[in-house]
């Protein structure tokens, strides 16, 4: 009981101070560049499969080696999700040219019913998302597991909309969470900074 309550407190403190969890860069980078097992903190250990808006199967591990900024959303959302996507576009524009092509922008839908690959393809066109964006559909299980790993809470209401946390997550090249923006306002410089810091050094 005590653990359950203290841990969120500790995490809240970590995020509130804006400090990314300490990462041991060298093993992380070598792991990202190599082909070894995923690190113990890597989200890529998740055994879940998704489908992109072109209908291709995608495992999260396929992003290994590139920094990732990831948001969970649903395409018919008229509230917070469009704002977050707009913020992600702003982050993309703000990245140094040398980094812009390295970062993957990932949107994973909560809505396993309506957000089919076709619906996601329409969303891509509507929002003019370029080739560095990956839009993912997953079955209910995969979506729930990913949300659980990210700390995203969500609930489908009976009218088919989703109430959900607004959390923008940055993963390093090894798939470890290095930064999360909580809420809707500001914090884009920190997201961009985390992405640049997370990019593996060119050799």
């Amino acid at each position: 009981m005590k653990t359950a309550l203290l841990l969120p407190l500790a995490l809240a403190a970590t995020f509130a101070s804006g400090a990314a969890p300490a990462t041991d860069c060298c093993p992380a980078c070598s792991q990202a560049l190599g082909q070894g097992a995923y690190s113990r903190a890597s989200l890529y250990q998740l055994d879940a499969s998704f489908t992109d808006d072109g209908g291709r199967p995608v495992s999260l591990g396929s992003f290994r080696g590139r920094p990732v900024v990831l948001d969970m959303f649903f395409a018919s959302c008229s509230n917070a999700c469009p704002l977050t996507v707009t913020d992600m576009l702003a982050v993309q524009r703000s990245l140094p040219t040398s980094q812009r092509g390295r970062v993957v922008f990932v949107l994973v839908s909560f809505d396993d019913q309506k957000d089919t690959p076709e619906a996601l393809a329409r969303y891509r066109a509507q929002r003019r998302l370029d080739g560095n964006w990956v839009l993912l559909h997953g079955d209910g299980q995969s979506v729930r597991e990913l949300a659980a790993l990210l700390g995203v809470k969500y609930k489908r209401s009976q009218d088919g909309a989703y109430a959900h946390s607004n959390l923008l997550t940055v993963l390093n090249a090894a798939g470890e969470i290095v930064h999360q923006r909580i809420g809707l306002v500001g914090g884009l410089d920190q997201v961009a900074g985390a992405l640049v810091a997370a990019a593996p050094q060119a050799r």
Partner: peptide
């Protein structure tokens, strides 16, 4: 519910 943290969570 803090409307910024949760999309559409405010009226639970």
């Amino acid at each position: 519910v803090d409307a910024d943290l949760f999309c559409a969570g405010g009226a639970v």
